[in-house]
Design a protein around this nucleic acid. Structure first.
Lengths: 138, 138
DNA sequence: TTAAGTGCAAAATCTTTGCAAATGT
DNA sequence: ACATTTGCAAAGATTTTGCACTTAA
């Protein structure tokens, strides 16, 4: 997925600071969702922990990143598809959470639709498979 | 869902203490999954916060409760179906997380199976729909 | 220039750990 | 009586808040 951090920031009326660009680059670089603790480690004292929190929050609100929780409730982030907006996130693909390496993959599979019971109004469905990923399965 | 806390504890070789029985009763009482913070509130100083953590952990490990994370990563607990064991959890039904009241419902709908890509081995799939529940939809 | 973003310190939460006292078998 | 479980205190981790300093437009 090729992205241009500066453009993305402009499109969302965000100032492009060194830190914001770095965060986007780092997340775009990885084909899997990356966890917040991992990001903290990567940035060390290049980016303050608090700043990272704030950047990730803004990105999620604006629909630039989407957040996927792994089994432990840890936040993982991946770049949203271009059709995501602040209002609606279209990350309706199946996720795969490896129980060995903990990585979360965004699979190229659309979440199967499910008929809700009378009275329940679903506007999104999250689907995450747990198991062993390609890299760990050797 | 009718349950007998004392029996459940016996079946899993757990001492039946006042606190453990209360936790099971409370969770069984509710038709929705109940969040840990809510449980803490309900028990006040009847059960220590730390004890609650430990009880919930044991119950999950033993396959007595299953844990569902809501959108914020907060743990919610519901009684497992009788076929759950410490080894395998069979909570393969769709969950519904209301974005208004935050409640998590265990729907009586089986999670649709998804064909994994080459090399990926899934052994369970979690499926959670987000939207407005029957009670809030009025 | 000035509104927004960052870093640091510190508060507020949440979760885990250690240990003495209480409890169930 | 003995192994487990509980409650309290305290450590550790995570997340939020406030505010002075810095930076992008």
């Amino acid at each position: 997925m090729k992205i241009n951090p500066v453009n993305i920031l402009k499109e969302h009326d965000l100032k492009h600071t060194k830190q914001r660009v770095r965060v986007l680059e780092e997340i775009a670089m990885d084909d899997t969702a990356i966890s917040q603790p991992e990001l903290e480690k990567k940035f060390g004292n290049e980016i303050d922990r608090v700043t990272l929190y704030r950047i990730l929050n803004v990105y999620e609100e604006k629909g630039i990143l989407h957040r996927v929780l792994d089994r432990n409730g840890t936040a993982n982030y991946a770049i949203c598809s271009p059709s995501c907006t602040a209002e609606v996130h279209h990350d309706e693909h199946v996720h795969f959470n490896c129980t060995i390496c903990q990585k979360i993959y965004c699979l190229n599979i659309v979440v199967p639709s499910v008929k809700m019971p009378e009275g329940y109004l679903a506007n999104s469905i999250n689907s995450t498979a747990y198991g062993i990923c390609k890299s760990c399965n050797k």
